[in-house]
């Protein structure tokens, strides 16, 4: 036999043997994948923000398909995506609570006191390590925009006075900005809740007054006027029930940090 024919036969038989092994392995070791995972994943937004409580969209799709997670956890997709996911799963979508980020500080560069300069790395976290840049208030916004960098939806921007502004229509309530903020002044709350004390300072009333013109000075007027809507906790008034905050309380706030947006 000539060499070319011999080699064709050898190579062909080797190929046949290996393909047989692969064919058997494919049958025996087959992993059953729920086709719904792929389907769910394709309708999710795919930003991997983690707002649902899972590391990424793929993990959430798997969790929904296995029944471990409800279909309405994706705050980014909102009601639309929840309905699609629910349809794939054959479930009721349930209500999706629309949440947005709120920045609880309005002490911008003009209204708060800065006692020193800062020349280190231009991030809030680094400034916070160095004693909070030069900002006298040790609770308020530092204004280097770590939250802006963290937002995958371009829903938070710095205004010209160095304070982040949340664009409600773009915000999906994923919470990445709140996580990035070293001073924990960003909260994720239902969009219907619109009344807040826009201050996060737990400083003593005297110090609060010294370091910022728009800080909660713990005077307690609002709590006295609407005791059911607010409570005083560690030198800071907190809105517990926005429905019960009276207009009078908002009007009487001496530093105007309690208001409705």
């Amino acid at each position: 036999m000539s060499t070319p024919i011999l080699s064709i036969i050898t190579m062909g038989s080797i190929a046949a043997i290996f393909s047989l092994i692969i064919a058997i392995a494919y049958r025996k070791l087959k992993v059953k994948v729920d086709p719904r995972v792929e389907e769910i994943f394709s309708v999710l937004p795919g930003v991997n923000c983690g707002a649902c409580g899972y590391p990424g969209c793929q993990n959430y799709a798997e969790a929904v398909a296995s029944g471990a997670a409800p279909p309405n956890k994706c705050t980014v997709g909102g009601a639309e995506v929840a309905a699609l996911v629910a349809k794939i799963m054959g479930l009721e979508a349930g209500e999706v609570e629309r949440k947005v980020a709120r920045v609880l500080c309005i002490g911008d560069r003009e209204k708060s006191v800065w006692t020193a300069g800062y020349e280190g790395p231009q991030t809030c976290a680094a400034a916070n390590v160095a004693g909070g840049a030069g900002k006298a208030c040790s609770y308020g916004c530092l204004g280097f925009g770590d939250c802006v960098k963290a937002c995958p939806f371009d829903a938070i921007r710095m205004n010209d006075k160095g304070l982040p502004v949340v664009y409600e229509e773009k915000c999906t309530g994923c919470g990445l900005c709140a996580e990035a903020c070293p001073r924990d002044i960003i909260v994720i709350e239902p969009i219907e809740k619109r009344t807040y004390v826009f201050c996060s300072s737990h400083d003593s009333p005297k110090r609060s007054r010294e370091v910022c013109s728009v800080s909660c000075i713990a005077c307690g007027i609002c709590v006295r006027l609407s005791p059911e809507g607010l409570e005083m906790k560690d030198n800071l008034a907190i809105v517990t029930d926005p429905e019960k905050v009276s207009d009078q309380a908002i009007e009487k706030c001496p530093t105007k940090v309690l208001f409705k947006i």
Binding site: P121, A125, A126, N128, V129, A130, E179, P182
Partner: peptide
């Protein structure tokens, strides 16, 4: 380069992540 400042920042970020 403020190397120590960056390192302090790194320590802070890692600790923050670990406690969260």
């Amino acid at each position: 380069i403020p190397l120590v400042h960056w390192i302090k920042y790194g320590k802070y970020m890692v600790r923050r992540m670990e406690t969260k």
